[in-house]
């Protein structure tokens, strides 16, 4: 059964800076589809543009070019007010820093219902309170917490509050931008388990943005590798980790520290040198080299990649 696509990003470009002199292209011609019910990962190093893509999808940043479709409907650029509210509900975000992302002066009950207030997505105050209780229970917190302040909670609990705030809107797509990077190992495991459990229970689709490749490998179904604003490779997660094709992907994967001293002390790290590509005549294209395995490469490289993939 072929899954339908929930979100489609087509050739998007995001630029910063006003005039031509200090213009920075943060995202350059990126395209991908997120299927309903899957976890799609976006990995890359700092400054690669992965967070910018997430922010462009929830329309914090405007596109310089390209289009974003949600269930086939355009949601980028100018859209009607009703669609705007609808999309705000359907696409929610979880942020990295559980300390900075919660308003210190507001009670948890208010923080969690802020989205409801903004979109008037509740019938009465009773209804709102009920929704808050349900959201808190969903993320494994007690309803009494609604009357407390963020400073009373640990990092892991704060991240749960951040997740409750997204869930209360009954979203379909959740963009998680480094949701566990600031957490300790054991708390990280709890939050990852919670994300998996919620996906199962509520049928959520995740866009998971992270630089932590071992977390991405564990949680995502498909993954795209982004470097300097361009996607270089996209494949099913296991295939990408087993058979990375693009030299940048290989370099990135080789650098992950493995918690196994014998392997770690004998490993070889590959170094990516962008000048290894010769795109002067034979231009690079975005090509599907194997089933669902895309890579940015020229004709000569494609031949080589196919050989590796099918060997």
């Amino acid at each position: 059964m072929k899954k339908e696509s929930l979100l489609e990003v087509k050739n998007i470009k995001v630029e910063f800076g006003t005039n031509r002199k200090n213009k920075i292209v943060a995202v350059d011609g990126v395209s991908f589809k997120i299927l309903k019910g899957e976890s799609f990962g976006l990995v890359g190093e700092s400054g690669s543009g992965k967070s910018t893509i997430g922010r462009a999808i929830i329309r914090i940043y405007d596109l310089a070019d390209g289009v974003i479709l949600y269930k086939g409907q355009r949601i980028s650029g100018k859209i009607s007010k009703s669609l705007d509210i609808d999309i705000t509900k359907k696409i929610q975000m979880i942020f990295q820093d559980p300390i900075a992302s919660l308003n210190e002066r507001a009670k948890i009950g208010y923080i969690v219902s802020e989205g409801l207030y903004n979109t008037k997505y509740y019938i009465s105050d009773e209804d709102r309170k009920e929704k808050v209780i349900k959201a808190l229970l969903d993320v494994g917190l007690f309803p009494e917490f609604a009357s407390r302040f963020p400073h009373e909670f640990s990092g892991g609990q704060r991240q749960r509050i951040g997740i409750a705030r997204a869930l209360i809107m009954e979203p379909e797509l959740v963009i998680a931008d480094e949701p566990v990077s600031a957490l300790d190992v054991s708390v990280r495991a709890q939050v990852l388990n919670l994300l998996l459990e919620l996906q199962d229970k509520l049928g959520l689709t995740y866009l998971f943005i992270s630089h932590d490749l071992s977390v991405v490998r564990y949680i995502t179904d498909r993954v795209a590798v982004i470097y300097k604003g361009k996607i270089l490779e996209l494949a099913k997660t296991e295939e990408l980790f087993e058979k990375p094709l693009h030299p940048y992907t290989r370099a990135l994967l080789s650098a992950i520290p493995v918690p196994d001293p014998r392997r770690e002390k004998n490993k070889k790290i590959e170094i990516y040198n962008p000048s290894c590509h010769d795109y002067s005549i034979d231009k690079a294209e975005w090509v599907e080299v194997g089933s669902g395995h895309f890579v940015l490469a020229n004709k000569k490289e494609i031949k080589e990649y196919r050989r590796i993939l099918f060997s």
Binding site: V185, S186, E238, P259
Partner: peptide, 28 residues
């Protein structure tokens, strides 16, 4: 890494996603 004895060391190592099976819950 290969011969840990304390339950806390076990817990710390088991909660790593690298040792988890995909689709199964992580040890926490």
């Amino acid at each position: 890494f290969y011969n840990s004895q304390h339950p806390y060391t076990w817990a710390l190592l088991s909660s790593l996603p690298q040792f988890a099976e995909k689709g199964k819950f992580l040890y926490s």
